[in-house]
Design a protein around this nucleic acid. Structure first.
Length: 936
RNA sequence: GCUCGAGUGGUGGAAUUGGUAGACACGUUGGACUUAAAAUCCAAUGAGCAGUAAUGUUCGUGCGGGUUCAAGUCCCGCCUCGAGUACCA
């Protein structure tokens, strides 16, 4: 019987669907939660790179089911956000429509690969029943603050109570830097607006007016992690700074916990490192400088207070709040000009322009707190307003940026390092120096001077130790249509949250959902977007009298709002009393293995950890981290093809032609390449409009192209569609081949030619079950040889799945089937156990043969075969015998022999004698069961 | 610049604790079957040298050094590639 994969796969996919084979519920069995990062359905469809992680997680899930676990393995769609909306805009349709179409297409493609997802738990972040809880969490954040003493989030009511009863007493440390001091009675006399303003400084979801990353092309604000190399991650559009009123999440309060708890999870080290860098903890000191002839002070942050005697200027950021106050009258216009120039720079310019030093003198001076020297205050964009205090002390001797700045503006460069030449560059090492010209610190090294100066600074009350983080609060507002509405309305300009009972606040229908260049939100186009505290959402078209309507927030949430907590919704997807029930959470607990790409390191994977900790603080969750283990699957690289063109004559050249002119590199669709690297010019000219007018160098010349491997992407014309592979070889072959390519965490090139090896393996396996008459298995006692092969494979495959080394599993299967084929094994006991072993990898294949050999139940819950050691016990070992570490020959010896007996046997062998050539060995090293090494 | 990875045949990769480097597969070459092709099966396949051959022998895991009886694996110093990040004081 032939291996008819198309028919088999269709049959079993249908079987699994109607029998709900993969549906799980709470049970007394041990649980396991295996999750993939859910996709955003983009419209381009799947290519073979997408399912790589899904296949690995599916194999792992299926294996664990065989091992007796109740496995939660769900899937859903991250269907709100920029990718979905950009696709809708591009195709001129409503995002709701395109999103559901794309989801259907994704689902069809996913189903063909035979995943064991429990689709009854499917979630979509754009579903109101889902985003109700996304809004609910936001509201909880709005009504919370971070208690610095207890290091956890608490209800904002705790803070209000304290203000009501004690004034600022309990929170002076937080209020003073903000400029607020008040007694109990003062607080109670404040109007609601002022109270709201003060509280806004504490809320974990807060409204603020400040500089944001503005992307005009996308018509929205972006978070830091959505900008790559100074342009938007989506589309690659320029980003500038703009002052906009926007919502933020106070994630920075969780910096320390986000950093420390990384040690508690088994995530890839490079990814943890990325998060650590992004959080960017540094220890330092803040020091206050008095401004000359003024009662103003400038506070700087530095990690090198030991270099304080090398200060020759201060620099403040252009956005620093008091720049105008500091500027003397004759400098005012040049300062204004400089500041406006800086604000016009795009993020990209700022990045590429790092080498250009710019700045302007403010006209004011500060007084050095130790030696009383006059220190000029400068303004420059090399200082970032949002980091530290927005002001730095310039120590040109010890910091390259300060050095460059001082050189450019001819500021003093006092040397404070003994016998170190700083004429060409600053000296920024923390070792190998002693200080000079440094008053009390003279002749001291780094650590001694550091300890002393910190003590001195604190004793004199001019500063204190401080820990600084790079992590900024997350900008939460998006001026876009396709996202969760932020459930806030404005009563007399004061933001109020919508009662939890009234969630979800559903996205309104609008005539026009396109973003605007000036940043007005599309939700403003709705006539129904207003709130009344009694009648709730108001339709402004209706004639409503005597009803106070309040404007609703026009911004929507970013894409990561819905993805920051979705893994809990799978546990209990239809619950309308809470985002997850206690029972479900107690049972499923957390994710055991989470599969996804490392590109989410500083986005989704950081935000979701923050959400986790926030919800943990309120005991809505009982773990401080949500995923014990994370696997970053690598990319599958596609083959891209390029040809070269002379930019002047538009002639095309074969790639091996050397030319003195710099040739343009033109990307062509890989389908025009035949064989290794020959371009089918006729096809290219016929099909590709761009190439019609092109002049080719010679008509009958062969055109060669250059190939490069890069990330698979539709725009690079190098995608391979999994459907095509399924049609030609079947899903089981696709699954096994993707795993066979290499370790999952590694990037690896796709080469469809290699797939035949895996496919013929399955055919070979299949053929063991059949002869000309049909199924033909023997029921006899299996041979020793076949038992050894089977148990060797059980051991190797199960160990390899446990450590997620799936490529080597495939090799073991191939070795196993090669061995069984060579002895023509058709033993039922052996083969049926092998079917269970292969079932996680090739589920359709395994189900079909399982039923053909007479089972009427699905194979998916069969118990995994036990590995029995006795079948593997060897009595002999082929020892490699090496001389001076180089293997010369092998010798078969019983494993029962001890060292002396082995030595005797080896030395008496003729071969040894010939290598020794009558000399005596200096030393003989014998590792029983491993090697024999003779030193001569 | 800084941080973190990774360099093994023509290709993808294997070698889990230092112990026969190159498993498994692709590709290539030769052969069988066939009128022919496809499919299938068999054999060879790291490089060099010697030999008709069996075989022998040297080199070989990015480069240079070291530790060890023994190094792809450990240590030191470089080179190259990839990823992340970037005026973070």
């Amino acid at each position: 019987m032939r291996y008819n994969f198309l028919e088999i796969e269709k049959k079993w996919q249908h079987f699994w669907k109607i029998n709900q084979t993969y549906k799980v519920s709470l049970s007394s069995k041990p649980k396991l939660y295996v999750l993939d990062m859910f996709p955003y359905p983009s419209g381009a469809g799947l290519h073979v790179g997408h399912p790589l992680g899904y296949i690995a997680s599916d194999i792992y899930s299926r294996y664990k089911r065989h091992k007796g676990f109740n496995v939660l393995h769900p899937q859903g769609y991250d269907s709100f956000g920029l990718p979905a909306e950009q696709y809708a805009i591009k195709t001129g349709q409503h995002p709701k429509k395109t999103t559901s179409e794309n989801i259907n297409m994704y689902r069809k493609q996913l189903d063909r690969i035979g995943f064991s997802f429990d689709w009854s738990r499917e979630i979509r972040t754009s579903d109101p029943n889902y985003y109700k809880w996304t809004q609910w969490i936001f509201t909880l954040m709005f009504n919370s603050f971070y208690c610095s003493k207890e290091k956890k989030a608490k209800s904002i009511d705790v803070l209000i109570d304290s203000f009501n009863n004690n004034g600022d007493k309990d929170y002076q440390d937080d209020l003073k830097p903000l400029g607020y001091t008040f007694s109990k009675s003062q607080w109670n006399s404040f109007d609601e607006k002022l109270k709201s303003e003060i509280l806004m400084n504490f809320r974990l979801a807060y409204l603020t007016n400040g500089d944001v990353n503005w992307c005009e092309e996308l018509g929205t604000v972006l978070a830091n992690d959505e900008i790559i190399n100074g342009v938007s991650e989506r589309g690659g559009y320029p980003v500038t700074k703009k002052v906009v009123k926007h919502w933020c999440l106070r994630i920075s309060k969780y910096s320390e916990r986000l950093l420390n708890d990384l040690d508690k999870i088994e995530w890839p080290e490079p990814l943890k490192e990325m998060q650590r860098n992004w959080i960017g903890k540094s220890k330092g000191v803040s020091i206050t400088f008095q401004v000359e002839n003024s009662n103003r002070q400038i506070e700087v942050f530095t990690t090198r207070p030991d270099t304080i005697f090398g200060v020759s200027f201060l620099t403040i950021a252009p956005e620093y709040e008091d720049t105008s106050e500091l500027s003397s009258s004759n400098n005012k216009s040049s300062i204004k000009k400089y500041i406006s120039e800086v604000s016009k720079k795009t993020e990209r310019d700022r990045l590429t322009d790092v080498k250009t030093v710019s700045g302007v003198f403010s006209g004011s001076y500060a007084i050095h707190p130790f030696n009383g020297k006059r220190i000029p205050i400068w303004i420059s964009d090399y200082v970032i307003a949002s980091y530290g205090t927005g002001a730095v002390m310039g120590v040109p001797a010890g910091d390259q940026r300060d050095f460059d700045f001082a050189k450019k503006f001819q500021i003093d460069i006092p040397n404070i390092f003994k016998n170190i030449d700083i004429s060409k560059a600053a000296f920024s090492d923390k070792f190998g120096f002693t200080l000079i010209n440094s008053d009390i610190l003279n002749e001291m090294d780094y650590s001694t001077s550091l300890d002393l100066i910190i003590k001195e600074i604190e004793n004199r009350g001019i500063g204190k130790s401080k820990i600084q983080y790079k992590l900024r609060d997350a900008i939460f507002s998006r001026q876009r249509y396709w996202g969760e509405p932020i459930p806030i309305y404005y009563k007399d300009g004061i933001p109020k949250n919508i009662d939890l009972d009234n969630l979800p606040l559903k996205l309104p229908e609008v005539d026009n959902f396109l973003p605007t260049k000036n940043g007005d939100s599309p939700l403003g186009n709705s006539k129904k977007w207003a709130w009344n505290e009694n009648i709730k959402k108001v339709d402004l078209n209706e004639n409503i009298n005597n009803v106070d309507t309040f404007p609703l927030e026009l911004n929507t949430m970013p894409g990561w709002a819905g993805s920051s907590w979705y893994f809990y919704r799978y546990m209990d997807p239809t619950n309308d009393k809470g985002f997850v029930s206690k029972d479900s959470q107690d049972y499923w607990s957390d994710i055991d293995v989470y599969f996804g790409g490392s590109e989410h390191a500083t986005g989704h994977l950081l935000y979701s950890r923050f959400y986790q900790k926030f919800l943990y603080d309120f005991k809505f969750l009982n773990k401080i981290e949500y995923a014990k283990k994370l696997i970053n699957q690598g990319m599958i690289l596609g083959n891209s093809a390029f040809i070269y063109r002379n930019p002047l004559t538009s002639e095309y050249f074969s790639s091996d032609l050397t030319s003195e002119i710099k040739l343009d590199k033109i990307r062509i669709d890989i389908k025009y390449v035949k064989g290794e690297n020959e371009v089918d010019l006729e096809m290219l000219q016929n099909e590709d409009k761009d190439f019609n007018e092109s002049i080719f160098k010679t008509k009958n010349q062969k055109f060669l192209c250059v190939r490069e491997q890069e990330k698979m992407s539709k725009s690079k014309f190098n995608v391979v569609n999994p459907d095509e592979i399924c049609n030609q070889y079947g899903a089981d072959t696709l699954r096994m081949y993707e795993m066979f390519l290499g370790p999952i965490e590694q990037s690896k090139p796709w080469d469809t030619r290699g797939i035949s090896g895996v496919h013929s393996f399955l055919k070979k396996f299949w053929n063991l079950f059949f002869n000309e008459d049909g199924i033909k298995l023997s029921d006899e006692e299996p041979s020793k040889e076949s038992l050894k092969t089977l148990h060797k494979t059980i051991k190797k495959v199960s160990e390899d799945i446990e450590r997620l080394s799936l490529n080597t599993c495939i090799s073991s299967f191939m070795i196993c089937i090669n061995e069984l084929s060579s002895i023509n094994c058709n033993n039922k006991h052996i083969l049926e156990k092998l079917l269970i072993l292969i079932s996680p990898f090739a589920p359709h294949f395994a189900e079909e043969l399982w039923s053909q050999i007479g089972n009427n139940k699905s194979i998916v819950n069969e118990i995994y075969p036990e590995y029995i050691e006795k079948y593997l016990v060897e009595s002999e070992k082929t020892y490699p015998v090496s001389f001076n570490g180089k293997t010369k020959f092998t010798i078969n010896l019983s494993l029962d022999l001890n060292k002396n007996e082995i030595q005797e046997a080896v030395l008496s062998s003729e071969k040894t004698k010939s290598f020794l050539n009558n000399s005596n060995p200096k030393k003989i090293i014998i590792v029983p069961g491993k090697i024999i090494n003779i030193v001569i």
